[in-house]
Design a protein around this nucleic acid. Sequence first.
RNA 1: GGAGAGAUGGCCGAGUGGUCGAAGGCGCACGCCUGCUAAGCGUGUGUACCCCUUAAAAGGGUACCGAGGGUUCGAAUCCCUCUCUCUCCGCCA
Length: 423
Amino acid sequence: MLDIKLLRDDLDLVKQRIATRGTKIGWERFSALDRERREMLATLERLKEKKNQLSGEIGKLKKSGADASAPMREIGELSKAIGEREGPLAQAERRFEEFMLLIPNLPHDSVPAGSGAADNREVRRWGEIPRFDFTPKNHWDIGEELEILDFARAAKIAGARFALYRGQGALLERALIQFMLDLHTRERGYQEIIPPFLVNRDAMTGTGQLPKFEQELFRTADPDWFLIPTAEVPLTNIHREEILEREGLPIRYVAYTPCFRREAGSYGQDVRGLIRLHQFNKVELVKLSEPQNSYEELEKMVADAEEVLKRLKLPYRVVELCAGDLGFASAKTYDLEVWLPGQGTYREISSCSNCEEFQARRAQIRYRPEKKGRTVYVHTLNGSALAVGRTLVAVLENYQQKDGTVVVPEVLRPYMGGLDRIG
RNA sequence: GGAGAGAUGGCCGAGUGGUCGAAGGCGCACGCCUGCUAAGCGUGUGUACCCCUUAAAAGGGUACCGAGGGUUCGAAUCCCUCUCUCUCCGCCA
């Protein structure tokens, strides 16, 4: 959520910067909704003031045994007037709040203009693209031939866009998860969390998935819960409605969780393989930072995610998303894209974002810069480090051999009982 | 799932219808005192929003004692519903 004061003071600036995302907002409603609600509130508060005053007088009169019938009559009128105004005010506030919750975050000044992936800016590349003396295969072919991935049976059990890992495939996925967690906890200062995988509506609203993106979430019927689409949701919401100690910042969390997404509207894309599933594994980083450090923290987070790829010796590039490609809550995002020989292209494997105070404002996560001072919203950051399934894809495709086997990256071997080759 | 107890400020903890945003303590901030440290003394110390101004503050107001509703001129205090926590029983991984 944006700062209401910013909208009041400089609506044109906000309009301009939101427009760079390509998002259309009915701005003409803002001033009307804001004015409506404030006028109603002011009127109602004046009436309540008068009522409280009278009520006090009645108390005094009654205590002294005097007659209180005059103010009692007067207060009856007031109560009626107040009662009549409360409902409409509540509605006006709800309309205003709904409006505010649908405005995306402002892109950071450094974010390149542009409307889609084509306008993203490549920041750097790392690693050598492997050369094969045979035609490299897709990971789903590799996986099915080695009998470590089984999409047909996953479809039988659940449906399309699910995967079943078998034997050394499952082991490889698990090794990746543990390798990533060990790196971030032992060397990069993140605390490991195992959060709930189901969260409530408040949590989803706090990070910005709701109210706008409900159609992309899986939801449970009886208690109104949602399956997390990313660990960003539970991790960021850990400190919802808290005032944090400055000394404790930045807070760094890492969690492995499965992620669940409806993928509504993505029907033609990536229908085969592990790239786009309703359920996938991810190791996620979340930081809560002081505002003045958050961009420095973002760079460090990107480096933490890159380190996973470097140690796996997987070639990748870092891309800075343009305004049109930014997620709803993000002010600035770097994507890591890994090279996939089977597709002959770079594919997203991580996304690291600084949401600045956008989520903190929704989720009421604050801290006190000075012992006595006012509270300030923290900045929240999140990043995948990495999307595990896609990392497995990259390993299979980059480490495939002519004979159909797959060499296990060295850093993973200790996690796989010394296994150096699959197949 | 059944029975019971509870939810008050950063923390602990009083408060069962009126001037309670809430005693007291701890913590914290500032000041005093003091060879140093410790102790002591004094003062202050919630959040959000609205109005008025505004560079900001001060000031005025409304709301908030788990959440929502109700009774009442008036609710932290009474009633209802819900959520959460704790204890016991049952069940279960």
